[in-house]
Structures are given as structure tokens and as C-alpha cells.
Design a binder for these strands. Structure first.
Length: 566
RNA sequence: UGGGGGAUAGUUCAACGGUAGAACAUCGGACUCUGACUCCGAGAAUCUUGGUUCGAAUCCAGGUCCCCCAGCCA
């Protein structure tokens, strides 16, 4: 079921946020539901944001309301147009639509300024000339109260004048700040006269140089919610102790509506770091190739990796919403990815590490065409013709000179099935000077054409292959987790970076039809792959989205993300 | 030692005073022209101590542990 098809009855009570909304609708405290997704355009969206997006847009859809996309662009020193564009593209890709409801905190700058004056006139805000150091020193500590600023009792007229001159750009950065006058002794540090406006001579992506002062998050967020008619302002846990301040502004300003803030626990994923600071450093420090590097947990990275948006939505639905901090096993995400890809990706054959096989009793001629099904669980996907010939490539891992007990693929003297083709038996092993196996000499049974023996005999293994004469070369990138630990250090992430997070294979052979294939594909017995955007004619590049579950390989060192390494 | 939150299988969530349930993971087994998929089965939890109640994961009291807050970041 698509996310938008969830009915209210099914969704009611699915989590505490939906419980609250259902109750508000029930008690008529709200007559509609309006939510918002409020990213700051200072980086790319990651899968943690997907949780918020799915929650906010999902809830709005389920309850027949709407969800706004609002850029929290109150700090021009960190925000860029590139991020604004990328965020829009990512939200759309995930499958959500804000319609006409695109907003920016900067749309409300003029109103916010007016409200700053309003607080001044009410004696509830003042311009403070203290230095940043002084403010820090007088704020107190977690256990000691702060001290009032010597500028706290400035006259209204003087405050108004100074505030206007701050706006006019008369003072340098940091010279003064507009502060709310609340309580320097509050146990909640957010209430110790928080800054409302700071002087920032910086060019803003939308307002350019029109402003020399910019509102703080606290002063902008709730009021923007009120202006837009947001009913339920859903944010993460770290804003919980900002809620009294959020409410204080709404109580002390003539706002047009009364939104409420609710907080949920952000997403954490094992073997990953979901913080914009870390992701930004990974990009700027050159640890990855960019925001859309397939190893990144960004939506852009997941997209390039080949992860379908449906899989992300399914994953988010599965993990639920609560207030307890938690770390979700990356295996959960992988399950959702396989679930979607198994159902949608067509099957093809590709040999990643080729081992040449010559079928000695097969004619030297042109070869032949065999039929292969495109999707075993979806007959509508049809079939395709694949070339077979005397020389083929099989996977190096599918041959073992001295097979271990559980190995039931090819070995000297052993018979296996070539998928959709014939049974072959290994007759001889060719080695190079170093003693490495470089070629296999096999025989085939013409009676097994298509893959079944008329005499009813069975083989234990079926392996994939490609025709040596017809397969096209390709590069394939195998990905493993970016970090070596399930709980990488956010403060010293560099030491936990996995040096083997990307393995490039340069001698792969794939079915010719793949040259122009644009969809996710399963290379049989190996995993799900997608064409990388760096592919060029004659230079195909595939990314492995995820390996198939592999109960034989049993890699224990690092989780299955990216599948087996060898 | 201030203020605000949170503790249920290995993990993530349910259970809203009335039989602690699901998904993922794990371990068995079946099926299979993908060691995939699918199917069947198993093990596995209420932080702790009291109290209220016929009955407590849920209500009350005390304790323990974990997370967030001292930006002119969001």
C-alpha cells in the first residue's frame, strides 16, 4: 500500500503523534491538520530527515490536511541555494508534494521584525550591548542562575532606536543583540533572556543584503508556524526544552493562530552517522566523493546507490515513532530494500570476476539462443533470448578445485547446471605459471537444453554465466558500510572509516541488453544493481545496491550491507 | 548538585488497569533451474524496590541507569 492510501482508522493509534492528532480532531481542538517539514538549507537531506518527512507529510495525508515545506533560512552564513534545490528534489523523489505550500522563514522576516518591536514596546525585549563573552559569563551554569544584563532596563524608545539601527546596518557583527526579557534565573537555560536577533552582515540566498540582522531559530520557528496556520509542529527531542520558549512567544505576540509543538526521537542507524556536521565534513574532507556518494546515508546517496524511495518509506513505517532514543539495525533498512527490489527488479546475468570455461564438446560455430525469464514472480515481465556458445565465463567463486563440504557448485569431475542452459561437467583445470586456475575445460549434455535432464537426474548447483563472445565489459562498484563499527564515533569519525567501503571491479561481463538498461536490476545470485550516472557509451558502470541474502557465505566481520566482500 | 525527557525479546515498535504481541535479526525445517524468494516452526522482554487493586508494563512512592540543554547554530 502506498503511503497516501493509509486510512485514518488504520493509522489512528499507530504512534503517539497520531494519537494526539486524532484526539485533537476528536475534541475539536483542531478542525484540520497542518504540518510542516522545516529543513535548514545547510546540507543535504539524509535518511533521518526521511523519518520527519514521512511523519509530517504522512500524517497530513492520512488526516486530510496538508504539509508545508518551509526552509528555516535564518542563518545566511551557513545556507546555500544548492542545498535548497537539492532538498526540494529529494523530498519530491521520496514521493511527497507540498503543492503551493512552499515557504521560507525569510518570507516572514518583515513580520518577525515587527513582532520584535512589539516585544520591545511591551517591555519584554531589549537590546543588549554585552559582548558574546559577557553574555556567556552572565548566563550562569546548569546549576547556578545567571545575572541580569546591565542593559536589561533600557528605555523602550532607546531599544526601538537601537533595534532600528541594527537593522539599518549601523553596527558591526556581534556588537549588539535583541534579547527577550524573561528570567535569568530559570532552570531552563533557554528562558534566560534568549537572543532574538543578531547582527549578521551576510548575503542571504533569498533576501540578499536587505537585512543586517537575522532572527534566531527560536524567534522565527514558532511564529512562522503561527503565520502559516500550522496546527502540529513536530520536531525532534532536543527541542523539548525549547517548548516553553516556543509557547512564550506565542503567548506574548498577536499571532494569527496557535500551533503546538510535539517532539519525537530522531533516527539513528547502526554503521552510520546521521548528523549534518559529520556528513558535511565527510564531503568537504574528501572522505567520500560528494553528497550523493553511494556510501552516504543521504537521500541523494541512497538514490545513486539504487535504493528505491518505496523502500525508504517502507523502512520508516516499520521503525515506528516514539520518544525513546534508539539505534535501528541497518539490517532493517536492508530488509525493506530487498523487499521492494525483489518484487520489482528484473533478473539478468552478469559475471563479476570471470573465469573462462570452454565447452569442449560444443560446436565451434555460431552458438545458439536460449530463453530466460525476466522475473520469476512476475510473468508480465516476459522472457528474453540469451546467447550461448562454446566459450563462456562463470564466476570465479563458483569453482573450487578442492571443494569444501558444503560447496555444491563446480569442481573437478562435478556436474552443475548453467542457468537456463545446460548441465556441464568439469573435465580439466588449466593453470598459469603461478599455479592459479585460469580456465576450465568442460563438457555439456545436449539433452539438458533449457536446464532439465530428461533422465530426471539432479544437480546440486545452478550457476550463472555469460557468453564470452557476446557479453559486454563493465565496471562494477561493490559497497560496504562506510564505518567499521556499528557505533562509529561522531566526534572522531575518521578513525572509524572503513578503508574497504568501496571495491571497484574492472573486469566484469554482463548481458548485452544491460548497455541501455535504466532500471534497478538483479544480477542473479549476486544482488541488486543500478547503472551509475557516470556510465558512458562503451564504459558501463554499475553500483551494487545490496547483495542478496547469502546463507552460504556467512560473512561475520561486517554486516550484510553491500553483501559479501569477496 | 538546575531544568527537560526516556527505560518492554539481540534490535525497533505494540499493548492506553484484564491472556505481554509484531517486525527485523538469530536458530531449525520445507520448497527451489537464484545457497534468492516463499512457507512452517523455535528460542527470546516489562530497569529496580515497595505500595494501591480481585488483577499493574500500565496507577502511586522511592531508587538506578541513559539522553538533551550553559551558540549571537538549527
Amino acid at each position: 500500500m502506498a503511503i497516501g492510501e493509509t486510512s485514518i482508522s488504520e493509522s489512528a493509534g499507530r504512534d503517539f503523534i497520531r494519537d494526539i492528532i486524532a484526539a485533537d480532531l476528536d475534541s475539536k481542538r483542531s478542525s484540520k491538520v497542518v504540518t510542516r517539514f522545516p529543513p535548514e538549507p545547510n546540507g543535504y537531506l539524509h535518511i533521518g530527515h526521511a523519518k520527519s518527512i514521512c511523519l509530517n507529510f504522512g500524517v497530513a495525508e492520512e488526516f486530510g490536511g496538508r504539509c508545508h515545506l518551509r526552509f528555516d533560512d535564518t542563518n545566511p552564513t551557513k545556507e546555500e541555494q544548492e542545498y535548497i534545490d537539492a532538498i526540494k528534489a529529494d523530498v519530491r523523489w521520496l514521493g511527497f508534494d507540498w503543492g503551493e505550500h512552499l515557504y521560507h522563514a525569510s518570507d516572514h522576516f518583515e513580520q518577525l521584525y515587527t513582532w520584535g518591536q512589539h516585544l520591545i514596546r511591551a517591555g519584554k525585549a531589549y537590546v543588549d550591548d554585552q559582548t558574546q563573552e559577557d553574555m556567556r559569563a552572565t548566563r550562569g551554569t546548569l546549576t547556578e542562575p545567571g545575572r541580569n544584563s546591565p542593559y536589561r532596563d533600557r528605555k523602550v524608545e532607546e531599544n526601538l532606536d537601537l533595534f532600528a539601527r541594527m537593522r539599518a546596518g549601523e553596527f558591526p557583527n556581534g556588537a549588539r543583540v535583541l534579547r527577550a526579557k524573561i528570567d535569568m534565573a530559570s532552570g531552563n537555560i533557554n528562558l534566560r533572556d534568549p537572543a532574538l536577533y543578531r547582527i549578521l552582515h551576510a548575503s542571504h540566498p533569498r533576501t540578499g543584503t536587505a537585512w543586517s540582522i537575522y532572527p534566531s531559530y527560536d524567534f522565527a520557528h514558532g511564529q512562522s508556524d503561527a503565520i502559516e496556520g500550522i496546527t502540529h509542529s513536530i520536531c525532534t527531542l532536543e527541542f523539548e526544552d525549547h517548548r516553553p520558549l516556543y509557547d512564550w512567544f506565542l503567548d506574548n505576540l498577536p499571532v494569527p493562530s496557535r500551533p503546538r509543538q510535539y517532539e519525537f526521537a530522531r533516527l539513528n542507524l547502526s554503521y552510520a552517522l546521521l548528523s549534518k556536521r559529520v556528513l558535511t565534513e565527510l564531503v568537504k574532507g574528501g572522505h567520500v566523493e560528494g553528497w550523493d556518494d553511494p556510501r552516504m546515508p543521504t537521500l541523494a546517496g541512497l538514490r545513486r546507490r539504487g535504493v528505491p524511495p518505496e523502500a525508504i518509506r517502507d523502512f520508516i513505517k516499520r521503525i515506528g515513532v516514539a520518544k525513546a532514543n534508539s539505534v535501528v539495525d541497518i539490517g532493517m533498512l536492508e530488509f525493506s530494500i530487498r523487499e521492494v527490489l525483489n518484487a520489482t527488479a528484473q533478473r539478468r546475468m552478469a559475471v563479476l570476476r570471470p573465469l573462462k570455461v570452454t565447452i569442449e564438446n560444443y560446436s565451434q560455430g555460431e552458438g545458439e539462443e536460449l530463453e530466460a525469464v525476466n522475473h520469476p514472480e512476475d510473468t508480465a515481465a516476459g522472457t528474453r533470448r540469451i546467447r550461448f556458445g562454446r566459450e563462456i565465463y562463470i564466476e570465479r567463486d563458483d569453482f573450487m578445485e578442492t571443494p569444501e563440504k558444503k560447496f555444491f557448485r563446480l569442481a573437478p569431475g562435478r556436474e552443475v547446471r548453467l542457468r537456463y542452459a545446460y548441465f556441464i561437467t568439469c573435465r580439466e583445470t588449466i593453470k598459469n605459471a603461478a599455479g592459479e586456475v585460469v580456465e576450465l575445460r568442460c563438457s555439456y549434455d545436449p539433452a539438458t537444453r533449457g536446464g532439465n535432464a530428461p533422465d530426471g537426474r539432479k544437480v546440486k548447483g545452478t550457476i550463472h554465466w555469460v557468453s564470452a563472445a557476446d557479453a559486454v565489459p563493465a565496471h562494477v562498484r561493490l559497497y560496504n558500510p562506510l564505518f567499521t563499527r556499528p557505533d562509529p564515533s561522531a566526534s572522531e569519525f575518521a578513525k572509524d572509516i572503513n578503508p574497504q567501503s568501496c571495491e571497484l571491479l574492472t573486469d566484469c561481463r554482463i548481458e548485452p541488453s544491460m548497455a541501455t538498461w535504466e532500471h534497478p536490476v538483479q544480477f542473479e545470485r549476486q544482488g541488486y544493481f543500478c547503472r551509475d550516472r557516470s556510465s558512458a557509451p562503451g564504459g558501463l558502470v554499475f553500483n551494487r545496491t545490496l547483495g542478496l541474502r547469502d546463507t552460504y557465505a556467512k560473512i561475520t566481520a561486517i554486516p550484510a550491507t553491500g553483501g559479501k566482500t569477496g
